[in-house]
């Protein structure tokens, strides 16, 4: 229909793939890290180890994709770790009724928490950090109540465990799940009205409302999506572990996810998002952890380096002055 227009102007879609600003910085940092490790860390560049990095990053990545959406509305979702625990606990306790029921129940429970977050934030105008802090605390409690006061609920079901341990062709199942989530997140942000509304609601909610953007619905949807992705991560973790450990699953994952999002270049103030950047951010964190582990450097040192990288990433994002 408009071939000429297409030829004449660069397509808008390309722009977000172009590396610029903080995301470019993160990509370079990742390149340097991988390069240095390939040279200096024995066995780092082996196929087995690279798969290992991907395996370990996949749950954080699932959560971080949702977190990217949430943060680009100007919010934050601290409850993701607890939602993982709830989803794992619900799935483990309903597994005797079949895998579809368990997965649906686990994700459903997660969605309920997300809906609660979204409604309290969008409709009752309570600050996201407060709402999700409450569901972080309460959710962990509920997860433990659901699993007989925090006992380990064993999962003895190879089909379910496939989610965490199996392979689809050469790819570990959980890596495939994470890749699908990343693709979905990027697609939503770039190609759908919903994605545009997320950025509009985060960039200037008052203007978005006047332009007819369904701001409430968008924000509620974002928190539900974040919870669903966290729920999925919870199922994967439980499958990997072969049990639902309500006290441990997803503990502190919100911090890793937020770090990945921030390092990747999504603006904390909202209005700007990059799922691609989040992937890079998550990979940076994981490569540091893995390589330090392989070099037998104490874990504590890798935490210190991560902290430095987070600060540097935020420093790069600071508002520029002329």
């Amino acid at each position: 229909m408009s071939e000429t227009t297409l030829a004449a102007v660069p397509r808008a879609g390309r722009r977000r793939l172009r590396l610029s600003g903080p995301t470019a910085g993160a990509a370079i940092a990742l390149g340097v890290l991988v390069g240095a490790n390939a040279l200096l860390t024995p066995n780092f560049a082996s196929a087995g180890n690279l798969w290992n990095v991907l395996l370990q990053v996949s749950t954080v990545l699932l959560v971080a994709v949702g977190m990217t959406l949430v943060i680009s509305t100007g919010g934050v979702d601290l409850s993701v770790g607890s939602v993982m625990a709830i989803a794992g606990a619900v799935a483990a306790t309903t597994l005797d009724r079949g895998i579809p029921v368990a997965i649906a129940a686990g994700l459903g429970a997660a969605a309920v928490v997300g809906l609660l977050n979204g409604v309290l934030i969008a409709r009752f105008r309570i600050q996201p950090i407060v709402v999700t802090l409450a569901t972080l605390i309460g959710g962990r409690g509920i997860a433990q109540v659901l699993s007989n006061d925090g006992e380990l609920v064993p999962i003895d079901n190879p089909s379910f465990e496939f989610l965490g341990k199996g392979h689809l062709g050469p790819f570990p199942t959980q890596v495939v799940v994470a890749i699908v989530a990343v693709a979905l997140g990027a697609f939503l942000l770039r190609a759908t009205p919903f994605g545009r509304y997320v950025l509009a609601a985060g960039g200037n909610p008052a203007a978005a409302r006047l332009a007819g953007v369904p701001v409430w619905r968008t924000i509620i949807t974002v928190y539900v999506l974040s919870a669903l992705l966290a729920g999925m991560a919870g199922l994967v973790e439980a499958a990997k572990l072969g049990a639902s450990d309500a006290a441990k699953i997803g503990l502190n994952v919100e911090l890793d996810a937020i770090a990945a999002v921030v390092v990747g270049g999504t603006a904390l103030a909202g209005g700007r998002a990059t799922v691609f950047g989040t992937v890079i951010g998550a990979l940076i964190m994981q490569v540091i952890a893995t390589s330090f582990n392989m070099l037998l450097v104490p874990y504590a040192w890798s935490l210190a380096l991560k902290a430095g990288i987070i600060l540097f990433a935020v420093y790069l994002q600071r508002p520029r002055r002329v």
Binding site: A12, N204, A207, G271, R272
Partner: peptide, 17 residues
């Protein structure tokens, strides 16, 4: 305060409604 979405492009702002 009620018009532009500063971080979005001219095109994205123009087509928002």
């Amino acid at each position: 305060a009620e018009g532009i979405i500063p971080e979005l492009s001219v095109g994205e702002n123009l087509t928002l409604a």
